[in-house]
Design a protein around this nucleic acid. Structure first.
Lengths: 252, 252
DNA sequence: CGGTTACTTGATCGAGCTCAATTAGTGTGG
DNA sequence: CCACACTAATTGAGCTCGATCAAGTAACCG
């Protein structure tokens, strides 16, 4: 770590915002090269993180947003009686830590699910930069607004939808998000456990398992542990009569 | 409307941000007099609105946030199968319209529940002002962050809590919010119908009604149609083992 | 008044939870 | 390489909370 300055520099260069393939999804959406360079200057890039590691925990002094370059995170909070409540998953190109924007500390935790590479965007510097770059300020509010719309979509899901509709909606959301990222919309690996899925969707783990089995029987999915192949996208879509047409797929 | 210029001016003066009793809750929280005057200049004040009127509907081009001075609003969206999903209620001192920050249009509707007076904060002017007033920019993100935290609290409620816990949590939230506004924490009128409450909490209207009856039997509440008196606050609190300790009470 | 809407109360039923047992991966150490 | 432990996931059986269906009551309004 003390040797090889050059290697580190090369690495830094390679992962600058300009060369990142996530620009369409991440903060610098629609930015010019000059603007992106300025943003680039404030971004802190961490070493890849391992499963189980935390970006932050509830109560931690909040200091930054985090952009996921690769891997996957889950957001959750802990209820007073010690239960975990999964709030969402953050996939490449998406941001987490927005609940830290108010109150000076995070109200949720963010945990790494699979080896992930993450960019850190310090609030203070971000705010300062917003004054220079009106586009960034707009984009910040845009991203935060998407988060709100997405949360509202989840409220609808939990309030009104059956177990089957919830899982279908969840799978479609993952599919859409992976597809945006340039990956297959029909074949992907779940980065999270059944436990996490059930918790997130407000269902018992057994219900999730049974639904996967049922979808498989009906030739809608092929499921092998965490490997998912969507065989009948239309059937899934048919189950989801959502309001905010798949806005769930945005920064969650 | 064509006569009486003076009267209008007097009215305008009276309802300036400086004289508003909501400063502690609304956007200008922690602002100096000068800053508040600038904010004041961009605020549009509408005539009082009547029950049933809409501030906006899903799909409307989004142009502003709205701050409620008095009265109450409900936010909701419509699912594809025509059902209504209530997303939240906006009480005095709180903002609505944040889901319009992304995508150029509102994804939800905002409807007046009881005669309300509302301030309109145009996005464009708000953004411009953020450059002048770093405090405002911070406060904007703060308010939006609170919205996110609050939505996350609802996710937990709908995902994990029983009908009883949901209604208890809802009543405590109202109590807290009215109390902040200087009103009684124990006696208030519900601005919304049982229908709206049930819809919001993901419960059937009959369940809500039965719970009110049950709470009354147990001397926790006194309920007369929409008049609520909380008799045993501790019992209510005991039912709520929430994570983000009553952050639900913030701008919803 | 009669009609409409908001709310309450009762009776029944089922989606999904809970409890419990089984199976399939994933290391770990000898 | 295999036995062992441990966790993740599946599958089965019964039960419960809250939804649904249905009927009745109370406020409101022209």
């Amino acid at each position: 770590m003390t040797n090889k300055k050059k290697t580190v520099n090369l690495h830094e260069l390679k992962v600058s915002c300009q060369n990142c393939t996530l620009t369409d999804l991440c903060l610098p959406h629609g930015m010019g090269t000059e603007e992106m360079k300025k943003l680039d200057a404030i971004v802190i890039r961490q070493q890849p993180l391992q499963p189980g590691q935390h970006l932050f925990r509830p109560g931690d002094k909040s200091h930054a947003l985090f952009a996921v370059r690769s891997g996957a995170l889950k957001s959750y909070c802990i209820t007073q009686d010690g239960e975990e409540q999964v709030l969402g998953f953050t996939l490449p190109g998406e941001l987490t830590g927005m609940d830290g924007l108010s109150g000076g500390c995070y109200s949720s935790a963010s945990m790494v699910l699979e080896t992930s590479s993450v960019c850190e965007l310090p609030f203070g510097k971000l705010e300062g930069l917003c004054n220079d770059l009106p586009g960034l300020q707009k984009q910040m509010l845009n991203v935060v607004g998407r988060e709100i719309t997405s949360d509202q979509h989840m409220l609808m899901l939990l309030g009104k939808r059956t177990a089957e509709e919830r899982l279908a909606s969840f799978l479609l959301s993952l599919s859409t998000r992976y597809h945006k990222r340039g990956l297959s919309a029909t074949e992907f690996n779940l980065p999270m456990s059944r436990q996490d899925i059930g918790n997130y969707l407000g269902l018992a783990i057994e219900t999730v398992s049974r639904l996967f089995a049922s979808f498989q029987e009906r030739r809608i999915l092929s499921v092998n542990r965490r490997q998912i192949v969507i065989l009948d996208m239309d059937s899934l879509r048919g189950m989801v009569e959502a309001c905010v047409k798949q806005s769930m797929g945005s920064a969650m």
